[in-house]
Design a protein around this nucleic acid. Sequence first.
DNA 1: AACCTGGGCAACCGCACTTTT
DNA 2: AAAAAGTGCGGTTGCCCAGGT
Length: 270
Amino acid sequence: MKMVQDHQEIRKGPWTEQEDFQLVCFVGLFGDRRWDFIAKVSGLNRTGKSCRLRWVNYLHPGLKRGKMTPQEERLVLELHSKWGNRWSRIARKLPGRTDNEIKNYWRTHMRKKAQEKKRAVSPSSSSSNCSSSSNITTNEGGASFYDTGGVGIVASSAEKKNINGGDPGKEDDNNTTKRDQREYSLDDIWEDINLPEVNSIEPVYDGSYGEEACKFACPLVASPPLPLSWDSLFKMDEDQESKNMFLPATPNDNQFLSGFEYGRPSSLTG
DNA sequence: AACCTGGGCAACCGCACTTTT
DNA sequence: AAAAAGTGCGGTTGCCCAGGT
């Protein structure tokens, strides 16, 4: 998967409006799994990875935007104390939030906390009131707030192995890639995280937004997304030809863009 | 008004794991 | 069974902007 297009340089950096739109369209067409393929046929000079990231973190129709609610904040703290830096896992418990978002939140949040703590400790004050954040203070053992990996569970590669590789944990990351899409209330989630870990993996939202994405975004595909099997159709000639075939002739046409109010949160939160 | 600083966020990188050939 | 390709995850970096000096 080395080069999307050998002769053309792979684009990096911020995504443009047009790129976003193209990506949304092609995800609508092909689903949100085959990123390399999408990268290729879409004509975006991006890597599959980059496409995936953009989709997951920004373009996904299920994304919630704006500040974390206090409940969410608390949940993040709670889950982090339980699972450590397993951001994607934590993110699954927070409808519409991405791992990246949570990670960023945690980082800044914990930085603040650390500073507060430092302040609280250094000027001979003995107050240890990090009241609201339940277990965060369990990291007092000297490890930095941010790098802790949580309390009991360190997000080490060993753990990772258990979760991804070992059968028992597999439900987490793999079998749930097509998770059912039911929404959880925060209460549900709270209940959920109190369950033993094995049982607690009940994703909140999944990657199967193909349909939604399609509806919301892609005027080219007004009806439900192409079934997966359609992919095979395009396998025949998934390179240049198909690119030409699907690429909107004029992505800037108003009609084309009308279905996609560019990238701003309001339009994405659905 | 200009500069500095810190927060927030988007995106990239490298690695590990899974799936396909 | 092994190799290659594809995908997901966590860590990190860099940019932008708002607020303070």
